[in-house]
């Protein structure tokens, strides 16, 4: 149990990152209510393990705990999501579509993007959220998700490729079905 001045330290280092914690949990869990429960649980875990916090970036430290808490929750509540529906082989043989998609992608609306992101398997979704919405470096993402650097890059690459394909398809079909 932290002492009073340690609690004050916890307040300064960890509490200000509530938005980052909630954003990650909300994207991984995909509903408000459960994401809030998970964030609260993660904060309690963070408090418990705060003795192990060696200073530095409180946000990255907290996000690693939030991520673990999310995965525990998903395992307990939505086990089927843990089995990635990404074809592990397919991406190597994907052709590079020469059709210009840039203009198409510029017409993407927020709802489409949100759906496409939510449709990504969770371990691909998380690297996109941490990279694009939190602006974290590969190294920071690797630490948070316990992944080798190369895996961070390859997951990002595949997640983006998939997003691009899904969005293009969605636009060509004339918006949301």
């Amino acid at each position: 149990m932290p002492e009073p001045n340690q609690l004050a330290r916890f307040e300064r280092a960890v509490l200000p990152h509530l938005d980052a914690a909630y954003n990650l949990a909300r994207w991984l869990i995909r509903n408000d209510h459960d994401a809030e429960d998970v964030v609260q649980e993660a904060y309690l875990r963070a408090l418990k393990f705060f003795g192990g916090f060696r200073g530095g970036d409180g946000r990255a430290w907290l996000l690693a705990i939030v991520r673990n808490t999310c995965y525990t929750w998903i395992e307990q509540n939505r086990k089927h999501e843990m089995i990635a529906d990404f074809d592990e082989v397919a991406h190597d043989v994907e052709s590079n579509d020469p059709n210009p998609e840039t203009a198409l992608l510029q017409s993407v609306d927020q709802q489409m993007l949100k759906q496409a992101l939510e449709a990504l398997p969770v371990e691909f979704r998380e690297v996109v959220i941490l990279r694009e919405l939190e602006g974290l470096s590969y190294k920071e993402i690797a630490d948070i998700a316990h992944l080798p650097l190369g895996t961070v890059m390859s997951r990002l690459a595949r997640a983006r490729k998939r997003l691009q394909q899904d969005l293009t398809e969605c636009i060509l079909k004339g918006g949301l079905g």
Binding site: Y22, E101, Q106, L113, L133
Partner: peptide
Amino acid sequence: HRDQLALRSAIKTGSLYYHAP
């Protein structure tokens, strides 16, 4: 490369960030 830049700017300019209530 341009496609990826377009995708990124779509993600970043959309208000996709969930702020804690």
